[in-house]
């Protein structure tokens, strides 16, 4: 089960902007063990979606992979020809987009869109494709009779199920889901996550789940990769990163949103400031300007990935003091702006 099946090393993705370029993803490394769900978590602009897009090599026009490797089952996705890459898409690597409404074509029935994938990409015949459509709808729990419906006839949650069915159409090995439940209500959110996990177990696929919501990671993921401003801040098993956060950013996030299981009287503590501009990132640790624990070295030297426990890494100069910092991070006063 722990066999590594996707291994991202020093991935760098840049965007051409005006005459220069900015590195939205700057030296990101992580592994996806076979048959696991890895949560890629961070705030808007941290580079999580850019990583997900780079893995499919379907990127914005001005984006390009400027360094690193993405080893998928022995092949480097960053070095594959467009033709070879295209052969992998959907058959081995599939994508579930955030907004299923925008990814489904409103003028075709859902069956037509599934058929397109099954017949053109999968090379299935008409009868086989019909059978597979029915299988897929059963798998995601939609009545087969609704195959002939148009996207607007489905509710938001149903549409997201259709998007899952589309992604699974050709039995991929890796599914990349970009904020698959973000636009949905809590009840539908939960039902879609249950579905995704059941299917992942049943089919033995690996999933990269991109999200800004730690609760989603806590509910469904096996491993966590926390990103901040184009870097990986912390990674490890979901349990370790949640119960023993070892990067000050992850520690701060723990106090930043309400927990229904917690006491009612708690005061939420924001992390003051905002992530840095990637066009002109600060030298050293990118979280240092917002970090209550920063010391001199943080402002000049990029912190290395420190292994705080076996398999649990934090990119922090003070990772060795993580237990003590964690204790201090619990207090509201630690996070109050000094100014």
């Amino acid at each position: 089960m722990t066999e590594t099946f996707l291994s991202v090393r020093d991935l760098k993705v840049s965007y051409r902007v005006g005459r220069g370029s900015l590195d939205a993803v700057d030296g990101v490394s992580f592994d996806v063990p076979r048959g696991s769900i890895v949560g890629l978590v961070g705030e808007s602009g941290c580079g999580k979606t850019t990583v997900a897009r780079a893995l499919t090599r379907v990127m914005a026009d001005n984006a390009f992979i400027s360094g690193g490797r993405m080893l998928f089952d022995g092949r480097d996705l960053a070095a594959l020809s467009e033709r070879d890459m295209n052969a992998l898409r959907w058959r081995e690597i599939a994508f579930i987009p955030q907004s299923a409404m925008n990814s489904l074509d409103p003028v075709y029935t859902v069956e037509y869109q599934l058929n397109e994938v099954l017949r053109l990409r999968g090379g299935l015949g008409r009868a086989q494709a019909r059978k597979r459509c029915e299988e897929l709808f059963e798998m995601v729990g939609i009545e087969v009779g609704r195959l002939r419906d148009y996207p607007h006839q489905f509710s938001g949650g149903m549409r997201q199920r259709v998007a899952i069915a589309l992604a699974l159409a050709l039995n991929p090995k890796l599914v990349i889901a970009d904020e698959p439940v973000t636009a949905l209500d809590v009840i539908v959110q939960r039902q879609i996550l249950d579905q995704l996990r059941d299917l992942q177990r049943q089919l033995g696929i690996s999933v990269i789940l991109v999200t800004h919501d730690i609760s989603v990671v806590a509910y469904i993921c096996d491993r966590t990769v926390v990103m901040y401003a184009g870097h990986v801040a912390e990674q490890g098993t979901m349990e370790a990163t949640l119960t023993q956060p070892s990067h000050p950013y992850s520690m701060g996030l723990r106090n930043a949103f309400p927990d229904l299981q917690g006491a009612a009287s708690g005061v939420l503590t924001p992390i003051e400031g905002a992530p840095p501009s990637l066009a002109d990132p600060p030298p050293g640790c990118r979280f240092a300007p917002r970090c209550p624990f920063s010391i001199e070295v943080c402002a000049s030297v990029t912190p290395p990935q420190v292994e705080v426990e076996p398999g649990h890494f934090a990119a922090c100069h003070r990772a060795g003091e993580a237990p003590a910092l964690r204790e201090r991070a619990r207090h509201v006063s630690t996070w109050m702006a000094e100014a």
Binding site: V186, I187, R190, D194, S215, A218, M238, L242, D259, L260
Partner: peptide, 16 residues
């Protein structure tokens, strides 16, 4: 109430 996401690794996965 059961559907509210919580940032806790040990939580119920029972169907809603």
């Amino acid at each position: 109430v059961a559907a509210v996401p919580v940032p806790n690794p040990h939580q119920s996965h029972d169907p809603l």
